[in-house]
Design a protein around this nucleic acid. Sequence first.
DNA 1: TAGCTGACTTTTGTTTTCCTAAGTCAGCCG
DNA 2: CGGCTGACTTAGGAAAACAAAAGTCAGCTA
Lengths: 158, 158
Amino acid sequence: MTDLLAQRDAWLTSNCSIARAVEAVGNRSTLLLLREASFGTRRFDDFARRVGISEPVAAARLKELVADGLLERRPYRQPGQRTRDEYLLTRKGQELLPVLTALRQWGDAWAADEAGPSVRVAHHDCGAAVHARLRCEAGHDVPPGEIDVLPGPGLLRA
Amino acid sequence: MTDLLAQRDAWLTSNCSIARAVEAVGNRSTLLLLREASFGTRRFDDFARRVGISEPVAAARLKELVADGLLERRPYRQPGQRTRDEYLLTRKGQELLPVLTALRQWGDAWAADEAGPSVRVAHHDCGAAVHARLRCEAGHDVPPGEIDVLPGPGLLRA
DNA sequence: TAGCTGACTTTTGTTTTCCTAAGTCAGCCG
DNA sequence: CGGCTGACTTAGGAAAACAAAAGTCAGCTA
């Protein structure tokens, strides 16, 4: 166990999935751009305006997101308009929805204003509100206090 | 519905729970400090070293986290040592665990190295792996594609 | 074919963030 | 009581991020 503790410093920085995820989405504008994409925003200037960032920053971030495979850029055309590009969530990007949902849930609980949240997220099939929940593979709901952190395969093999 | 679209620009920046949550934890070091706290790190220099940030930054971020009520700082003493301060997750901080779990899950799926993840998170009671899942209040598991975004109370009341 | 619009890029200058290195301070230990 | 260690703070400087304003460019539209 002392060995494991000694190794912690190494893997915590070099082989941590949280760190890698944070690397990809861990800044204000990236997460908010993904929020917008999940809300259905597709066009460049809508992204920039709704997220509240300048155009150069929006261009850079969107480019990063496309390069990282979180957004896909593809041409589309509205009738009577010329061809443009739109940004759509890829599967890789969609799978960040639990992150966004968990953030929204925390914000609703701890940082909402008095009027209540301005967005409601519902299950398409039944209309009920959607939450992020922790659950173990045995099917139990897991409250925050009942979690153990153990060494995983990437560490044991080293 | 046009009204709602027109209002979007306003509430998306000013009254969005995701934006507020991102405001609180939306930078690399804050999320990684919370990861450490959830792994049981308590002491100042362990935080700094394991997160890979310098001491001034660690001091500033930890101070912010305490001010925001995510960490609590309190004295403790190991036998034979003098009194020190330790940083512990508050309830408000603990409730970010779904966010960290969702990030880890995404990182495991999309950004893991070949050796596999170095951390395994298990349910204390049964040992099974813990995941973040989207679920609606009717009890259905909700895949990313089945989510509707609707105006919430904070918007309808405006 | 001239204009307009959406989608950017470039330029410039400011602000923020971060690291390194050094300094401070309190209290147990010998 | 003097050193050592853990937990910071201060000072200085470099790097990154950002906004504002202006410029570019492609392709409908008139």
